[in-house]
């Protein structure tokens, strides 16, 4: 069974048919080549495949494609403009908030969503918000520092 869907992916409207069992991560990777969306655990636990749906983080491996019909999906490739990094990407780069990089896209998208909701999150808020994103490499300090940097940068820019 296929289902027609129409949605905005990284600012561009896309209309196509999907299988009822197709999940967002597979469609983004295989149909649209958006391989920045990494699949770690494939069970909605690790958060590596996090993408934004209407600005809210969801796990791409555990979300059916038909469920995002009519919505706006943002992946890591959709952040930043004309090759420039978004403030969160820039902050992750400057703070060295990644090692292997496999969780990084999901982490950056989660933080982007956090800063849309709370422009000045305290440390406890940051750490709680990141509960959905596992990083096995860094021990998280550099990531928390990157979130603070990004928050400062967003505050200065506005």
């Amino acid at each position: 069974m296929t289902i027609p869907v129409s949605l905005v992916i990284n600012g561009k409207t896309q209309a196509f048919d999907v299988g009822a069992h197709h999940v967002v991560a597979d469609v983004l990777r295989e149909r649209f080549g958006l391989t920045g969306c990494k699949v770690g655990c494939d069970q909605g636990v690790c958060g590596a495949c996090t993408v934004l749906v209407d600005g809210a983080p969801v796990t791409g491996c555990a979300t059916f494609m038909f469920a995002v019909d009519g919505r706006e999906v943002t992946t890591i490739e959709g952040l930043g403009l004309d090759g420039a990094l978004s403030p969160v990407q820039q902050a992750f780069l400057a703070a060295g908030a990644f090692q292997c990089g496999f969780c990084t896209a999901g982490m950056i998208l989660s933080v982007t969503a956090l800063l849309l909701r709370d422009r000045d999150p305290d440390e406890a808020t940051i750490r709680q918000w990141l509960a959905g994103n596992i990083c096995r490499c860094t021990g998280y300090n550099a990531i928390v520092e990157a979130v603070r940097r990004a928050a400062r940068q967003v505050a200065e820019a506005s």
Binding site: L34, T35, G36, C37, K38, T75, I76, E77, L79, G80, L85, Q89, Q90, F92, L93, A94, G96, F98, G101, F102, T104, A105, I108
Partner: peptide, 17 residues
């Protein structure tokens, strides 16, 4: 980190695994 192109790929989704 800013000076190293491979690192930049890790924040843009461009890194190939």
């Amino acid at each position: 980190h800013e000076g190293f192109a491979e690192f930049r790929k890790k924040v843009t989704g461009g890194g190939v695994y």
